[in-house]
Amino acid sequence: MTTWITVCDTCKTDTWQEGDPVTDGERLADLVEAAAADQPEIAVRRHSCLMGCTRACNVAIQAEGKLNYTLGAFVPDTETARALVTYASLHAQSDTGQVPYRSWPTQVKGHFTTRHPPLPQA
């Protein structure tokens, strides 16, 4: 089953400079796409505005029939991207989407905003 990483491509952190043609969300999306390129169980997509502007950069980790998560307040860098892909891979391996805290990459700890239960089947 595929776990999706949805990256808000319109996010701008407090350090984003007016006039910069690339948003921080676009930078993070590029890095996550590159980090997930060799992970067949992970898919990455971009979405304009996840409505978490005060905690930019925002990401959702989702899979059908599993717990889904929203995370934010990231720096758009390679280390963050790798951590998000690692967490998503652990999510993909979990039957429920729940990943034991001790398995979380350090870079995602403290960045969780919400957890959503799976949608009902009917």
Rank of each mutant, 00 (worst) to 15 (best):
T2W: 12
A36T: 01
Y87L: 15
L31T: 08
S89E: 04
G110C: 02
D95C: 13
R55G: 06
W4F: 13
A56T: 03
R45C: 04
D24M: 00
T3S: 08
R46Q: 09
T54W: 09
G72H: 01
P105G: 09
G97A: 07
R82I: 11
V22R: 14
H116V: 13
N68M: 05
T13S: 14
S48C: 12
S94L: 08
T113G: 12
A43D: 07
A37M: 02
V44A: 04
I5D: 02
G72P: 05
P120T: 03
V108N: 02
V108E: 06
T78V: 15
S89A: 07
T6D: 04
P120F: 04
F112G: 11
A34R: 09
T10W: 13
C11T: 06
G72E: 03
A88F: 01
E41I: 11
C49Q: 10
D14F: 14
T3D: 06
A81W: 05
G65W: 06
L90Q: 01
H47Q: 15
Y101G: 15
G110V: 02
T6N: 03
C53L: 11
T13E: 08
Y87Q: 14
E79P: 12
G65V: 07
T10L: 15
A73V: 08
T86D: 02
P105T: 11
Q107R: 11
P40M: 03
G65E: 10
G52K: 14
C11M: 09
P76Y: 01
L90S: 01
G110S: 05
C49G: 07
T13L: 09
Q98D: 12
P76D: 03
C57T: 12
C49A: 10
A35Q: 02
N68Y: 05
H91P: 01
A56P: 02
D95M: 11
